[in-house]
Design a binder for these strands. Sequence first.
DNA 1: ATGTGC
Length: 482
Amino acid sequence: MKINKQDIIKKEDFLWEIPQTFRPQMLVPARVIASETLLDAIMEDRSLVQLVNVASLPGLIGASLVMPDVHEGYGFPIGGVAATLYPNGAISPGGIGYDINCGVRLLTSQQNAEEIKFKLEELSKEMYAQIPSGMGKGGQINLNPKEMDEVLTKGAEWAVDNGYADKEDLAYMESNGRLDNADPAMVSEMAKKRGSDQLGTIGSGNHFVEVDYVDEIYDPIAAEAYGLSKGQVVVLIHTGSRGLGHQVATDYIREIMAAMPNYGIKVPDRELACVPFNSQEGENYFKAMCAAANFAWCNREIISWEVRKAWKNVFGADVDPLKLMYDVAHNIAKIETHQVDGEKLKVLVHRKGATRAFGPGFEDLPKEYKHIGQPVIIPGSMGTSSYILAGANRSEKISFGSCCHGAGRKLSRTAAKKQVNAPVLKEKLKEIGIYVQAGSFKGIAEEAPIAYKDVDEVVETIQNSGIAKKVAKLRPMAVVKG
DNA sequence: ATGTGC
């Protein structure tokens, strides 16, 4: 299948549509949120073919959607949103991704960039020492089976109960860092074993811990509500459920592929394997996915503990504590209520490389954010800007309350490695005041800024589409990578 | 993304 420009209709500025009539198996139209230039870039890979494939999944409603940072992924595009009818529509592990509850959080300090500049190199080294990173790497905490089950059930709350964090953090996390449908019994022993020493570790690839400063404020009222001010030093943490979530995805993709024929489901790409949510396999996967999501929230909480420890070691025990601004998941499926064609429906929203972005009035928000909308955290690539946005009510109308999740990959990892001289890049970043601490030059090359789309353009497109609005821009000062 | 691959 090939998709050409003439197959795409401009619905409005920044919203494009491949109509349902494009392919007989489509149940709904496929939509793209993008500027014209980004749309051209999106057409370079298989993202739109995958988007059209998603539009044929059983129970899919409204439209299959992609964000301006989209690129191709396993079956589903990364940067995609798919809502299926609950409880008899499809659930598909490929629509969530291998790194279940990969996500981002932002910690805010009371210090400004000028004040900490002279300690930056020391800080980046101390953070690198405190935060285990890299492929297959374990950390300090070894969970016994009972503790593992508690983590899978309680999520970030486990970190609070065990002295790694204060209770206040929980209010500042999507779903309070805990999904109630989790069932540890649905997670394989292999997955538990792989995760047993991985709490508090970032892993590799695009995962990182980064010290940034607030470079620009676009919306002073929202910024004040979120506790952001110009020049302020903040910390971005990007990671997920590590080997545990990966194993859950592996286990259930296999099981669901085998079970699919029993439900008479045929999909255009085997990587879209799915079953009805209310089938045995579907329910088991959902319970395991929720457990893996809880593991990821606990992981980001323990990493925050490590960052806070490094902070005290460098700035002294009585430095003002780092506060959690917010924590968002961007690889997850959630049961939500949405208005579709004038009808209120319960749906399972698959967000794969997409962030929840409900607007003002949304219930699951701390009270000081409720009139602003949900914070959306958009990390850029290494050495470029990141953004804090606020979800807008328009997202509830056109994107099932979702927004983009990053800059979006432009080059494959292999292509990036060919083009980038990592030691030179590391030096160049240091010259412009960004300290990179990485376990491997391979990781630096794969994550080089040229491997990514222009985050400024992606965020501008989001703002113009109306699904979220810009609150602040962040600039990096120090990066810890795997 | 991932103890990097049927």
